[in-house]
């Protein structure tokens, strides 16, 4: 049975995929989401079979997601360029995420230079938090834009 950190990381990865596949043709979006669901399942079960700690699996999932963000954005823009409201949502994600991530990176750098493992951990948590907050901000904005559009064109 999967423990919460792993499940949360997998949910976050799927949630991010839903964000960047929003308004893409259904077959394209479903294919990417299906591949990701399968990948996450295989990743988690494989690592669990190897006896990897749950928090480490969750970090590995988060790391794969975070390192792939630029490629996701490029892939999305090649299929359907970011425009108008979608672009604003994406900018909101980046702005909120980058600001907190910068603080996190500084904490890690200062913490490692000063031999303060606690500070490094805080830095890592800030970066993870930055990402979650940024993504949620973008999601809420996207939903309100959708709502306004539906109200305008029922």
């Amino acid at each position: 049975m999967r423990t919460p950190p792993t499940r949360r990381a997998a949910h976050l990865a799927i949630w991010w995929a839903r964000c960047y596949t929003r308004r893409l043709p259904d077959p394209v979006a479903e294919r990417r989401l299906g591949e990701l669901r399968s990948d996450l399942h295989d990743h988690i079960t494989d690592d669990q079979a190897r006896g990897t700690a749950d928090w480490r699996i969750a970090l590995s999932v988060m790391s794969r997601m975070a390192r792939g963000l630029p490629a996701d954005a490029v892939w999305r823009s090649r299929i359907r360029p970011w425009t108008g409201d979608v672009l604003k949502s994406f900018a909101a994600i980046l702005a909120a995420g980058l600001a907190l991530a910068a603080v996190g990176v500084l904490a890690i750098l200062y913490g490692s230079g000063d031999d303060s493992p606690g500070l490094v951990l805080i830095g890592i948590l800030l970066i993870i938090g930055a990402f979650i907050i940024g993504v949620r901000t973008g999601h809420r904005r996207g939903r309100s834009v959708d709502h306004r559009r539906n109200t305008r064109h029922p």
Binding site: L36, R64, R67
Partner: peptide, 25 residues
Amino acid sequence: GFGLARVIQEQYGSRSLTAHGTLYK
């Protein structure tokens, strides 16, 4: 996808698996 990421990781002795976005792109 995941099987391939694992093979590449083991083949090249990488510490981490290929990122989702990079791999599927």
